[in-house]
Design a protein around this nucleic acid. Structure first.
Length: 913
RNA sequence: GGGGUUAUAGCUCAGUUGGCUAGAGCGCCACAUUGACAUUGUGGAGGUCACUGGUUCAAGUCCAGUUAAUCCCACCA
């Protein structure tokens, strides 16, 4: 027992060393000897593009809580850390840096060289991420760390591609895609953001011969129109439907079919819509539906394609101005108005998206196949299922549970609207598509990673990052090699991540994993909210003053305080606000915990050995070296019984709360126990229990020491998943021979026989008595240092109050306490009535009878209001008939108590008069 | 247009299957201060749980509607 703790806990003096010790002790690796069911979490891999932000910190805090708790439960707990190459994000980042620093583009370097540059950048950034992860205290198994471009993961990616291709789930097609002209790549529907802007809506005719006007915000694309769509019932245009009108638009000859479709809104613009099949997703659908011709207007670099006359080669924006100018010159424009518009932009670089037709690789989400594990996925035999159907099936059948469950609706809605997933990206950074084309005839292909020979060219595109990310529960566990890790640790138990990547990642993991492994990737999905600023705004890198950097916080307040501030007071799926004062509050708490330990360590007899270990049968405590198997701490006083009982309830509720994902509740309860019960009450009482002289007093003191140490040890264990650093540090002061590091200790076992609701209730009355006296003193402005005398009258609790008289005297600063079983209330006192107990303070000279009268009168009114409510309830026959018996009984009890108090108050009032 | 979330103390938020005289932290007010802790202690003030209706013996909690904020998805050219 060491007792040389500094006055305050300065986290940064301990944390790094503690983490090193944990790592050295291999505590992060799952205990494979354990026979219990493994518990696995795949860490959502941060993008290898830089540094961790608070979103990652929340993720690390929550996952570490689960992992540490399960580890202490004795389960082989595996938390697999990793990083993601994050194709588009990383390439963008390096491109931006190179442009800023050297004014060069990736093309100035060429693919091979540029990829090398990205690799170098990634290596640096991975190191940063690893260090930050350590700073947070994450107890993940570094020996199993993965990176999405690791060999074993690459092989899994290529094997997946091949299998899907052979099953007809991957195809190459000419389809309209979201094209980012800056990234020079397709991006998926989910990578498109919509920003509200205003746009100019032009109303015009294609030429003077054209019979009616159309309206558009994008006149330049009209160069590629092949139809005009109207609503079938629109009288203005009905007689044109089915005709083909030849027109000359800005020097281009267009053949426009007039088609009718319900989707056209007659109220918008002129009610006539120029259809540009290749540059609008909606128009593309019309083109498919009516078999329209297609004309490419915009090239992949964002300029007007060749064959568009004088506009060819112009930037889209310039072309627009030019087209408008030409139209105006020809007096074809009748109206220009500003309208609100949702502009589609690339979520990475905010460049406006050009929808265009391009030959890309897709995953067919509606193609039914039979290559499923029908048994483990509980599918109907003999039936083919599409990816979409299985994604719906496993969640609907609750093989995967989403927390909070309202995200089920979001999930299903997304899947219902899911279109084929475009997986090819025209990027250099990522998994290059394992497809080879024969040089002479590009249509002959081979799907494999290695080159089939000299006459073959590899597809230059890479795969969408989320393709490989979809494999992350099983690819790092070496599924591809049939490794034990996969057999032992898959499916994983929990996937914990932000709700913002439910679609990007969670859904795709379900898709990929069910298809490839025949298992669900995880049993539960826990979604946390976003961390916002004090004003509820998003923290964004472009606004650095709104951002809180975990690396600034940790040295100042400690990782434990940061962790607490990231999940206490927040619930799954809901955003939270974070600001320094909040973190400081938890820093204060951590310090409180430190000082609780510091006091106990200073106060108990240091030479003794306090070796409790709750490893005996039936969760009993044994003292090491003792032959007795029932060395449970023995409560001698009511306070002892109370604190030990409260502690047992904490053991029970903390475990239950963590099991049921109520992390905030668990920590809040522990916080209240630590501060408001242990520190505020029991520690103060222990001082009283330890101050007497004589043999009996010594025995009590020694017994109190045992209880203090037992409570502290247990409390450190309960706190450990939440605040690992400070608890581990304190553990070094209370651990004894044979104890392990706290991280490897077992979760405290519940000792049922120490639960004592009667003692808790009785002791609450003692606490309430003390509070009442303090309150009365404060009200009558008795100086805190001054002692008062008091009289407590209770027939029912006379003995109990007597037994606790010393505590009441000390904590309420009472020098002479009279405890009576009955009799008349003394005169000239300030009095207060609790349930079955009256407290009288003869505050001679301080009592103002008017003030006292007012005080009692106020209490009476309050009681009367309260009793009116109760009375109504108790007179209600329906209530008596329908409410459960214990509820009725409780209400009756309340009524009796209130009546009693009321009567006492009235007596009191009469006496003052 | 479809879907979701939120609305509870001055602020930030809890409130598990309906049983509540509605809680916490911060802030505020008063007092204290060498003893584990000023990163402290003691006491206190502060709420028609957004609004309207319904279900129920009983509604902050369940249902319907209204208002306001917010997010996601789709999208009108």
């Amino acid at each position: 027992m060491k007792n040389d703790l500094p006055k305050a806990y300065v986290a940064k003096d301990y944390e790094d060393q503690i983490y090193l010790d944990w790592e050295k002790s291999r505590a992060f690796q799952p205990d494979k000897k354990s026979k219990k069911k493994p518990f696995t979490i795949t860490m959502p891999p941060p993008n290898a593009t830089g540094t961790l932000h608070l979103g990652h910190a929340v993720m690390l805090a929550l996952e570490d809580i689960m992992i540490r708790y399960q580890r202490m439960q004795g389960r082989p707990a595996l938390w697999v850390p990793g990083t993601d190459h994050a194709g588009i994000a990383t390439q963008n980042k390096v491109e931006r840096d190179v442009m800023e620093n050297e004014g060069k583009t990736r093309h100035d370097y060429g693919r091979e060289k540029f990829v090398k540059m990205i690799e170098k950048f990634v290596a640096g950034s991975q190191n940063t991420i690893r260090n930050q992860t350590r700073k947070m205290g994450a107890s993940c198994d570094w020996s199993r760390e993965y990176y999405s471009l690791d060999d074993r993961l690459n092989r899994t990616v290529f094997a997946t591609f091949k299998k899907m291709f052979e099953d007809g789930l991957i195809y190459r097609g000419n389809r309209i895609v979201n094209w980012c002209t800056r990234c020079y790549s397709t991006i998926s529907d989910d990578e498109v953001d919509h920003v509200e802007t205003t746009a100019k809506l032009y109303t015009f005719k294609y030429d003077h011969k054209f019979p009616f006007e159309i309206a558009t915000t994008r006149p330049e694309t009209k160069l590629g129109d092949t139809a005009v769509a109207v609503h079938p019932k629109d009288k203005r245009y009905k007689h044109f439907i089915g005709k083909v009108i030849e027109t000359n638009f800005c020097g281009r000859n267009l053949k426009l079919s007039i088609i009718a479709d319900e989707s056209v809104e007659p109220e918008f613009g002129t009610g006539a819509l120029g259809v540009t099949p290749n540059h609008s997703i909606a128009d593309d659908q019309l083109a498919q539906k009516y078999g329209l011709e297609r004309i490419q207007v915009i090239a992949e670099d964002g300029t007007i394609a060749s064959g568009m006359g004088k506009y060819s080669g112009m930037e889209v924006e310039n072309a627009k101005e030019r087209v408008v100018a030409d139209l105006e010159k020809a007096k074809l424009v009748s109206k220009v108005e500003e309208i609100p518009q949702n502009l589609s932009v690339c979520s990475r670089c905010k460049t406006p998206i050009q929808p265009l037709i391009s030959k890309q690789w897709f995953i067919d989400v509606n193609h039914p196949v039979s290559s499923w594990n029908y048994r483990t996925l509980k599918l109907q035999k003999g039936r083919a299922y599409s990816l979409k159907e299985v994604m719906q099936h496993v969640v609907r059948e609750q093989m995967i549970e989403i927390i909070p469950d309202r995200f089920n609706a979001t999930y299903f809605q997304w899947i219902d609207n899911l279109r084929d997933w475009c997986i090819s990206r025209q990027l250099w950074w990522g998994h290059q598509i394992p497809v080879w084309y024969r040089k002479e005839d590009r249509e002959t292909i081979k799907v494999q990673e290695k080159s089939p020979g000299k006459d073959w060219l590899r597809d230059s595109d890479t795969l969408d990052t989320w393709f490989s990310a979809g494999l992350f529960t099983f690819s790092p566990l070496r599924w591809i090699d049939g490794h034990d890790d996969f057999k032992t640790f898959h499916p994983t138990q929990v996937l914990e991540t932000g709700y913002d990547i439910l679609f990007f990642w969670v859904a795709r993991m379900i898709l990929m994993t069910t298809y490839m492994t025949g298992q669900v990737p995880f049993e539960k999905v826990y979604l946390h909210g976003l961390v916002r600023t004090r004003d509820g705004k998003k923290m964004s890198k472009s606004n650095p003053e709104t951002c809180i950097d975990p690396l600034d916080i940790i040295p100042e307040f400690g990782a434990d305080a940061l962790r607490l501030s990231l999940f206490v007071g927040s619930t799954p799926g809901n955003d939270m606000r974070l600001y320094k004062e909040k973190i400081a509050g938890y820093r204060n708490f951590v310090n409180k915990l430190w000082n609780v330990a510091r006091y106990i360590l200073m106060s108990v007899e240091p030479s003794r050995e306090y070796r409790f270990s709750a490893t005996g049968k039936n969760g009993q405590l044994r003292r090491r070296g003792s032959t007795s198997s029932s060395m449970v701490p023995k409560p001698k006083t009511m306070a002892d019984r109370w604190i030990l009982s409260r502690l047992q309830h904490m053991i029970e509720s903390t475990g239950k709360n963590i099991d049921e994902f109520r992390f905030s509740q668990a920590a809040e309860d522990l916080y209240a126990f630590t501060w408001n019960e242990l520190a505020d009450w029991y520690l103060e009482i222990s001082k009283i229990q330890k101050r007497g002289d004589g043999k009996k007093a010594e025995q009590l003191a020694s017994n109190t020491d045992e209880i203090l140490v037992y409570v502290l040890r247990t409390l450190l264990k309960l706190w450990h998943p939440f605040t690992p650093f400070v608890t581990e540090e304190l553990w070094t002061h209370v651990k004894t021979k044979g104890d392990q590091k706290l991280i490897s200790e077992s979760w405290p076992k519940l000792i049922k026989k120490l639960q004592n609701d009667k003692a808790e209730k009785a002791f609450d009355l003692v606490r309430e008595s003390i509070t009442t006296i303090r309150n009365l003193r404060a009200e009558y402005r008795v100086p805190p240092a001054k002692f008062v005398s008091a009289e407590i009258v209770s027939r029912k609790f006379q003995t109990m109050v007597d037994q606790n008289a010393e505590i009441i005297q000390a904590l309420a600063r009472v020098d002479s306490l009279t405890v009576k079983g009955g009799g008349k209330a003394p005169k000239n006192t300030v009095s207060q009535f609790l349930d079955g107990l009256a407290i009288h303070l003869p505050l001679t000279g301080l009592i103002d009878s008017q003030q006292e009268k007012d005080r009692v009168q106020k209490e009476i009114s309050r009681l009367e209001v309260y009793m009116r409510g109760l009375e109504a309830k108790l007179k209600n026959k329906q209530f008596l008939k329908n409410a459960p018996a214990d509820i009725v009984k409780a209400e009756q009890q309340r009524m009796e108590t209130a009546q009693d108090s009321l009567q006492k108050c009235q007596e009191q009032l009469n006496q003052i008069l």
